[in-house]
Design a protein around this nucleic acid. Structure first.
Length: 498
RNA sequence: GGCCCGUUCGUCUAAGGGUUAGGACACCACCCUUUCACGGUGGUGAUACGAGUUCGAAUCUCGUACGGGCUACCA
């Protein structure tokens, strides 16, 4: 539905659908439900498609790249839905309703009681409204001939139990008396989701349908429609997925920014208020991690394995093992998944993204070899891709500021002399590599009767600016002879100052 | 209000009648260590409540409580 960003629940629904389809050799279709023109957002189709592409869940058929069951945009299928709706009326399963919005509102007021706080257009109420069941036939014909605004509603049978087997929750049943006569075709000629989903599923030969649990209450309408239109054969198997919850209840798209973590797959700008909400991609998540964490939110394979590649997920996924209760989204765990995937990633797989992230901060890396070395050294300490900047900026830029608090209290003449000697030694070192530097450094310390531990921290701060990062000699090795010497001199000046 | 779905550590979950109720995230401690991480070891911590069935219940049944969803010419 192109009415907003593609959020966690949406991607997970698609993911489970995708995994199931791929596992059983089926195709998987992206349909666009743009039946409500007032909510339709231009550009959302491309947005959704791009999100799925990023996540590696590209559909086999979609409005954007075709397929044999198109069109896939419901606004382009209006005539089809009208035809099925008329068929239902002919067979006595639906009727025309001419009630205006005001009349409906009045009905809701008039029939409101303490027992029934929101009266529905049901088998009792429909006989008190203006529709083709209550109006004389010639009056109905006259209204239709005059193009009076009307909708088509399903006529729900009385005293029946509709039951079906959900792939996740098993047998679910509903009493038709408590389900209302849902609108199938709106006054503007567009279908509602109820009609569209049934007709599209049939025409597109859908075998298995995955959707959120919020659709469960309207499942009986869809079952009934399918039965009336196509008989009970070939009805898709339904899987109603549990909801993904936020910190205090439902995970809402609106509050996306307030949670302190993304809710959309990719950056989404709400056209209504132009507010940009950051997505998982831009936050620094790897698509592999995103897929992995979503898959495990409500499903597991019964073993203790938690890290799965997409291929493993396809092989091991089973709807029966999907949990039926809602799951609260835990951002800390989500970050853990991403960290695991970054650690697991090949340097070559990270190269492009890291290079892009650095260039956004005006660090242009032309030496791919150097970049690879840096990525290899720091990737274990990055939870999000965006952490690569802080973790590696000092490889490319001389520190501007130092964590003086960690140095100054213990900074003395002995250490100054020590570093002066280190500089002299480094200047004479031709084979510049981490091992040799470390040996030389420790030898000088021994000669000067200084514990290596006492000068390693200052050396680190000289090179990095702070108390973090990979091994100091690895850093010196990568940064190079001249730069290392420069950094020592520059930092000493700062340490001595004040 | 009505209908539907759900309920195991704080969070995600395992255990399809018999386990000291397992794992992961987070948290804490220790080890490793030149920093920060990684890694390793250990720890705190849960079957919502009440009945019933059974030799035996987290597991089956019923009730209660709590949570969520739906109750639009939205999806």
């Amino acid at each position: 539905s192109p009415t907003g960003g593609l959020h966690l629940g949406g991607v997970r629904t698609v993911l489970y659908n995708y995994l199931f389809a791929k596992k059983h050799g089926g195709d998987f279709i992206l349909r666009i439900e743009d039946t409500d023109q007032t909510r339709y957002v231009a550009g959302a189709e491309e947005y959704i498609f791009n999100c799925l592409k990023w996540a590696g869940l590209e559909p086999d058929e979609s409005p954007l790249h075709g397929g044999e069951y198109g069109p896939y945009r419901q606004s382009e299928r209006k005539a089809i839905y009208r035809q099925y709706a008329e068929q239902l009326i002919k067979d006595g399963h639906a009727y025309y309703a001419f009630d205006t919005p005001e009349e409906l509102e009045k009905m809701r007021q008039d029939f409101r009681t303490e027992q029934n706080t929101s009266p529905q257009y049901d088998h009792v109420i429909r006989m008190k409204m203006r529709n083709s069941l209550t109006l004389p036939a010639d009056e109905v014909k006259r209204l239709l001939d005059q193009n009076t605004r009307h909708v088509i509603r399903i006529k729900l049978p009385e005293n029946e139990t509709v039951s079906f087997t959900d792939m996740i929750r098993g047998e679910v049943s509903f009493d038709t008396n408590v389900v209302d006569d849902k609108v199938l075709l709106k006054a503007d000629g567009m279908p509602t989701y109820h009609l569209a989903v049934v007709v599209d599923d049939f025409l597109m030969k859908i075998t298995h349908a995955f959707r959120g649990e919020e659709w469960l209450p309207s499942a009986p309408v869809h079952i009934l429609l399918w039965k009336c239109l196509f008989g009970l054969k070939n009805m898709p198997q339904w899987a109603h997925l549990p909801l993904i919850l936020g910190p205090n209840g439902k995970l809402s798209k609106r509050d996306g920014a307030k949670y302190g973590f993304p809710v959309f797959a990719m950056n989404w700008t709400d056209p209504k208020n132009e507010e940009l909400v950051e997505g998982f991609k831009e936050k620094g998540f790897l698509p592999e991690a995103f897929i992995n964490l979503l898959a495990l939110l409500g499903w597991n394979d019964g073993t203790e394995q938690e890290i799965f590649t997409k291929e493993e997920l396809i092989e091991k996924f089973s709807v029966e093992r999907v949990h039926s209760g809602g799951a609260k989204f835990d951002y800390e765990k989500a970050k853990w998944f991403n960290h695991e995937w970054i650690k697991k990633a090949e340097v070559s797989g990270l190269r492009f993204e890291v290079k892009r992230l650095l260039s956004e901060k005006n660090i242009i890396v032309s030496d791919e070899n150097l970049l690879d070395k840096v990525i290899g050294l720091v990737k274990d300490r990055c939870t999000l891709l965006t952490d690569f900047y802080d973790q590696s900026v000092f490889f490319f830029k001389t520190p501007e500021q130092y964590d003086l608090g960690a140095i100054k209290p213990k900074w003395n003449e002995a250490k100054q002399l020590f570093f002066a000697e280190v500089v002299r030694n480094f200047e004479l070192t031709n084979d510049w590599n981490a091992h040799i530097l470390e040996n030389n450094f420790k030898e000088i310390a021994a000669v000067n009767q200084i514990k290596p531990g006492d000068v390693l921290l200052p050396f680190r701060v000289m090179l990095v600016g702070g108390k973090f990062g990979p091994g100091v000699f690895d850093i010196a090795g990568v940064v190079g002879k001249q730069e290392t010497i420069n950094r020592i001199s520059k930092a000493e000046a700062a340490f001595n100052a004040g």
